[in-house]
């Protein structure tokens, strides 16, 4: 390398002015650029999720885009389940596939649980419905949550995500003039949109005659999406013999409930006694990935509330507070 003695010359003064101007411009430019890039302020961090355009189409047969993509019927897809008792749990004498965790008590395979009237949604919550919630609130969801087709069940939702949707739907239905009068009256009477309890879910799935599957006592693959390849549109599997006209109670996606996972017997008055430190919450119904055994109405899954999996979704209920 050619080395020279230090120069005697002074720096070119004219370049100082230009240089300082460049420096000032650089700083100003960076400041403006950073300002435009800054994330939305949030105490919990995160800028809110964007809703993919395909998740909220202008037209979705069977659903009302202007009513948060809820089903196009009188009660926005909610079905009344009348008050009364039903048999809860799995009885291995009549159902050889019953799991041990379905046993009611050391002395009884099943128990009788009486529930007041409640309402439960005919379909699982769809991608479009959940996208309407995310669009309205900027709620942060996982990357996969809204990637499905709009009429498929939303999946990859955690238990708190599902509850957040129910809180939003509750508040929205209370305030909106589009809410059918019957639902408005329920909400005024202190009913609440939430996840179904495990007992509510089981009663809605099996009715009061203790059937093993929603349609009867034998597995029928044309009635539900289990052992399949992926999710299917909600309600795609018709089930005329299912109680209350509910669809996809078996298969498609596992459904979160608002009940903590703990041993039976189930007490509808208090299902939070003696909770363990480590949270697991009940999910029901099996999914497209599961064998027929998990598609039974009495099957209980314990889900990590933080898990977001492509086979886990939910449906909503309206229950008395």
């Amino acid at each position: 390398m050619n080395q020279m003695p230090p120069p005697a010359t002074q720096p070119d003064r004219s370049t100082s002015v230009v240089g300082l101007a460049v420096l000032a411009t650089l700083i100003l430019g960076v400041a403006v650029w950073m300002y435009t890039q800054r994330p939305a302020a949030s105490i919990l961090g995160g800028a809110g999720s964007a809703v993919p355009s395909g998740a909220t189409p202008s037209d979705l047969p069977g659903f009302q885009p202007d009513v948060w993509y809820l089903p196009d019927d009188d009660l926005l897809g909610f079905v009344e389940i009348p008050e009364g008792p039903f048999q809860m749990g799995g009885d291995p004498t009549t159902d050889r596939q019953a799991f041990e965790n379905e046993r009611w008590s050391p002395t009884a395979a099943q128990g009788t649980v009486s529930l007041p009237t409640f309402y439960i949604s005919r379909f699982e919550v769809t991608v479009a419905q959940f996208a309407a919630f995310v669009g309205a609130t900027g709620f942060n969801v996982g990357d996969a949550t809204l990637q499905g087709r709009p009429n498929h069940p939303v999946s990859s939702v955690s238990w708190p995500d599902a509850l957040a949707y129910t809180r939003w739907l509750d508040a929205t239905l209370r305030e909106s003039p589009q809410t059918p009068p019957a639902l408005s009256q329920l909400l005024r009477d202190s009913w609440k949109v939430t996840l179904p309890s495990e007992a509510e879910w089981e009663k809605a799935a099996r009715g009061t005659d203790g059937r093993i599957y929603p349609w009867g006592n034998a597995a029928r693959s044309e009635r539900a999406n289990y052992q399949g390849e992926g999710t299917t549109p909600v309600g795609a599997y018709l089930c005329p013999d299912c109680p209350y006209g509910l669809l996809d109670m078996s298969g498609n996606v596992w459904e979160w409930t608002r009940s903590p996972y703990q041993p039976y017997p189930y007490d509808p008055a208090n299902d939070r006694e003696g909770l363990g430190d480590d949270a697991l919450w009940v999910m029901r119904g099996g999914s497209f990935t599961d064998p027929e055994r998990n598609a039974r109405t009495a099957t209980r899954g314990g889900g990590d509330p933080g898990a977001r999996r492509p086979f886990m979704g939910f449906r909503v209920a309206i229950s008395p507070s």
Partner: peptide
């Protein structure tokens, strides 16, 4: 509470 719950802290879920 959601964050606590997702970390399986039971009180957060409740």
């Amino acid at each position: 509470f959601s964050q606590a719950c997702e970390l399986r802290f039971q009180a957060g879920c409740v």
